[in-house]
Design a protein around this nucleic acid. Structure first.
Lengths: 147, 147
DNA sequence: TAAACTAATTATAATGATTATAAAGAAGTA
DNA sequence: TACTTCTTTATAATCATTATAATTAGTTTA
């Protein structure tokens, strides 16, 4: 079923006039199979063995292409590098304050919040971003052990 | 009343053992009076005339100090520089996709979302981040005019 | 009030993520 | 197959932010 997602993504790209190169194929495939919201550099390193000559710029360029096609979402957290997430169905992220791990969770969209924001500010609303922060079970366990 | 906010902030700092320097005083004052969620560089430039010898590092250092004391919140948006927001009472931000302007709005906290996220993922929740994106009235007017 | 202790500031260099550039290579098409 | 155009590569540049080390200045206490 992740095979179908890849195929769909390739069709989407082709339809918007984007050429399918081996590098693009590999980056997409890696993103889809990945559970970990990788950084550009992690993608680069993961594909190094298959593409020894690939440039980091290629990874960045293509992530931008994918983002512009709506296939990939960029997650930014100030300090560190951006992370990239293949868009499947809508979900939110919860992020561990200790180890930085990112876990998906589903929740109905926050249309009510969007409506209120629009009403109060006069903006025409396009989208929103929500993240929850906390401590993941693994880190919590270690904290308990340490006491 | 913004004078009271500054006074409170200075007390908070003093109580946590942070020295009050003229630079810190000025940065805080500027942040409180500012409506625009400035970047570190904007703060630096704004205070240049009063503190011709101040270093950019001082601005960054002190913004970190203020953040650690809970006085200031850092807003990160990937591409550009971080923006800094003096914490008054809880509010969310709505951001214009066209011109980047940031406007505050108030909404009851999303405790329900936090609860669900915690339940689904097993995380101990600390906080959340919510932003709404759209087009501000000014940009909307210009878009209409352009058609 | 002045000495002493320690933290803060300054100037500068370093870091690290991301982007720009220009030449070489490869997709897609007639 | 040859052509056109987009993509990749390698490298240098940019820009925000942080580290460093020397100097300066708050704060405390006698």
């Amino acid at each position: 079923m992740s095979g179908a997602m890849l195929k769909d993504a390739l069709v989407t790209l082709k339809e918007s006039g984007v050429r399918i190169t081996p590098q693009r194929h590999a980056i997409l495939e890696f993103l889809i199979s990945s559970e970990t919201h990788p950084t550009a550099d992690e993608i680069y390193k993961a594909l190094e063995s298959d593409f020894p000559n690939m440039s980091v710029a290629t990874v960045y360029n293509n992530l931008r292409v994918f983002r512009n096609s709506g296939l990939v979402k960029e997650l930014t957290y100030g300090d560190a590098s951006s992370r990239f997430d293949f868009v499947t169905h809508d979900h939110y992220h919860i992020i561990c304050d200790e180890c930085g791990s990112i876990v998906d969770f589903h929740h109905p969209g926050l249309e009510e919040v969007e409506r209120l924001a629009s009403y109060v500010t006069g903006f025409k609303v396009n989208s929103h971003r929500l993240e929850v922060y906390g401590v993941c079970p693994t880190c919590e366990k270690q904290a308990v052990k340490a006491n």
